[in-house]
């Protein structure tokens, strides 16, 4: 009888400690955790991660003068290691004097046109991705921290609405795959929870670096919906919502994905 009581007591203690461990635990999973071991090692090794080639290229562009203002990024921002630390973790944000939010590559192009007096870099171009990767890499290891700007709420809510709206010929929403069925298989591949932790990512299928916009377009085509026009505000709204959803998760840019 005593032994039985002791056993029950022990079971209660175990159950209580297990529950305590679960309460604080973050159950969100980065896409990295759903990849194979080989790809995880590739991402972690800075000389095997092809995204680091773009980071290297970006560090060269950072110091290169451009535009009629003949200024480089470094002329204003100095050492990216200190000035750009945490920047990727808080974007998209609303720039000074603007009404609508921009994401990281939007911000880079804004800097080019306003401060460097140079031409915009085309979307998904190697130069833009390289700079984006270089800036994002400075925030590696930091938690995603969206700014507490109340003006962003309306945009974020619109992003959430897009995330939950069914669209396309397959009549699917983002949420159906990435909330309701995350962790299950889609044609042999684990459906990730869609946390933007590693962008810009080096996707092996693309054989190059790609932005979160490209990934979103890819998903839209996958559900046979018409993707929003390149640089449409909908992408930034979705990014805002996704970054808020992944708040506190660790940035790992540049990520490697299959």
């Amino acid at each position: 009888m005593r032994a039985l009581h002791f056993g029950i007591g022990l079971a209660i203690i175990f159950a209580a400690s297990w529950a305590a461990a679960q309460v604080g635990a973050d159950k969100r999973r980065s896409g990295t955790q759903d990849m194979g071991e080989a790809l995880q090692k590739m991402q972690d090794d800075d000389t095997a991660n092809p995204g680091m080639l773009f980071v290297q290229l970006g560090s060269q562009s950072w110091a290169k003068k451009a535009g009629t203002a003949d200024k480089s990024c470094a002329d204003c921002h100095g050492n990216a290691g200190t000035s750009m630390k945490g920047v990727a973790a808080r974007y998209p944000a609303i720039p000074k004097g603007a009404e609508a939010p921009v994401d990281l590559d939007g911000r880079i192009n804004l800097c080019r046109t306003e401060n460097q007096k140079a031409e915009r870099l085309p979307p998904e171009s190697r130069e833009l991705l390289a700079l984006e990767a270089y800036v994002a890499h400075q925030s590696r290891g930091l938690p995603i921290a969206p700014p507490a700007d109340p003006r962003l709420d309306a945009f974020r809510d619109q992003g959430a609405a897009i995330y939950r709206a069914r669209q396309g010929q397959l009549n699917l929403s983002c949420a159906i795959c990435h909330d309701d069925n995350a962790g299950r298989k889609l044609a042999g591949v684990t459906i990730p929870e869609a946390h933007p932790t590693g962008y810009p990512i080096y996707r092996l299928e693309w054989q190059t670096l790609g932005s979160l916009k490209r990934r979103l377009r890819n998903c839209l085509v996958g559900i046979r919906a018409e993707p929003y026009a390149s640089e449409a505000p909908e992408y930034v709204m979705l990014e805002l919502f996704l970054m808020d959803r992944a708040k506190g998760m660790v940035l790992e840019a540049p990520g490697v994905r299959p």
Partner: peptide, 8 residues
């Protein structure tokens, strides 16, 4: 300039 990463 080419971009190379060597690990040795």
């Amino acid at each position: 300039m080419a971009n190379v990463l060597v690990n040795a």
